[in-house]
Amino acid sequence: KNSQILDGTPFNFKAYMVGKATSVNKALDDAVPIKHPEKIHEAMRYSLLAGGKRVRPVLCLAACDLVGGHESAAMPAACAVEMIHTMSLIHDDLPCMDNDDLRRGKPTNHKVFGENVAVLAGDSLLAFAFEHLATATPPGQVPPGRVVRAIGELAQAIGSEGLVAGQVVDIDSEGVEDVGIEQLEFIHIHKTAKLLEASVVLGAIVGGGTDEEVEKLRKFARAIGLLFQVVDDILDVTKSSEELGKTAGKDLVADKVTFPKLMGVEKSREYAERLNKEARELLAGFDPHRCKDE
């Protein structure tokens, strides 16, 4: 595929995403077979294999590739981050949390399997992410020290210093009048960007990146993590439901604090531009053929 780029053929982002997502879907399908007790495993598979863009696992694979690692070195890590993402969605959708009935156009996990099974399916996916990372990462390609480091990174990203912290502050700030920009960024950095960051960092670690490369990619991931959210917020107020494929203005209705609400659409756009530029600059110094995006 690199020769294609060298030949001058433009990088096809969509084809790249679809190709990688297909490999990830296959790996996820193989990773969680149906076994006893069937219902929990069916519930795990129901949400895990429900589609989705696989942004996190693809970022993980791309980061591994960028530092010169083989795809098979990062596939278990890629699956692990998707398992974590899925478990956080299952728990987020529960009646005592966001109380959502639909996810990606399908009934949410607890609607199909019941709340108790949804809680357990989430817990099981969380545990399995770590088991899979620890046991399925090929020891011939990735020394144990790197796997241990990857486990530490993942654990930090999803716990009370990461994903969970974002969810807690998000819950605390609902309906609150004076949510500031710092608090809003805290929510998104923790709820969204931390797991994206971990996805990239895990790929770079298992791929054998140097400390300097890992840290550069960490900053890159932070920037795009926030960028994702800012753009999401802008789209929520500027596009119709039809264009988005989901309910537009949902954040406004839910009285959620957003970037356009705090700084206006125009300033939000400028902010997104800045983050975009910052992310690109952080990729300078890597092999340009391996980080091409257009």
Binding site: K35, H36, L120, A127, F128, E131, T135, P144
Partner: peptide, 28 residues
């Protein structure tokens, strides 16, 4: 403790709390 042993320990705990272990027990 060498890193290989840490990986074994982490896998052991993850397996125990997961869908074939304690989560399975609670479900049943």
């Amino acid at each position: 403790v060498p890193e290989t042993r840490l990986l074994q320990v982490i896998a052991e705990i993850a397996r125990t709390v997961g869908s074939a272990g304690m989560a399975a027990g609670q479900f049943l």
